[in-house]
């Protein structure tokens, strides 16, 4: 639907990829791990290896969760656009087809300590 207006109304997005000086945003969420109140936002170079993001900044942020130390990344189930997806950690963000402001999610079946605590 169009915005009701007296003349032509055109908006400009403020978070376009060209505002990030060669970098892009990526969102990552660990499903059912609600100690983290919202998905993490990363600002990374598209050439960065996905494995470096996962084992580096993402793993660092995950440490406070009691399940963090037990994760086997080869058994993690990934979702991209809400659908099952297989990442390649050895390839870059770009080569994995992860666009600007892409939301990645992952699940760790059997490892949901705080959810199952009550």
């Amino acid at each position: 639907m169009a915005v009701a207006a007296l003349k032509e109304y055109v908006g400009v997005s403020r978070d376009r990829v060209e505002n990030y000086h060669g970098k892009q945003l990526v969102y990552v969420a660990w499903d059912y791990h609600m100690l983290f109140a919202a998905p993490f936002m990363f600002c990374v170079e598209p050439q960065m290896k996905l494995g470096d993001l996962v084992r580096g900044p993402l793993s660092a942020l995950m440490q406070p969760d009691p399940d963090a130390a037990s994760i086997d990344w080869s058994k993690v189930e990934w979702l991209k656009l809400g659908k099952p997806w297989t990442p390649d950690f050895e390839r870059s963000i770009e080569e994995n087809g992860i666009g600007h402001k892409e939301q990645l999610r992952f699940r760790t079946p059997g490892l949901n300590t705080l959810r199952d605590a009550a």
């Binding site: 100690l35 919202a38 993490f40 936002m41 942020l61 406070p64």
Partner: peptide, 8 residues
């Protein structure tokens, strides 16, 4: 606990 991951 501090979450230095900026949120979506």
């Amino acid at each position: 606990y501090k979450n230095y991951g900026l949120p979506k």
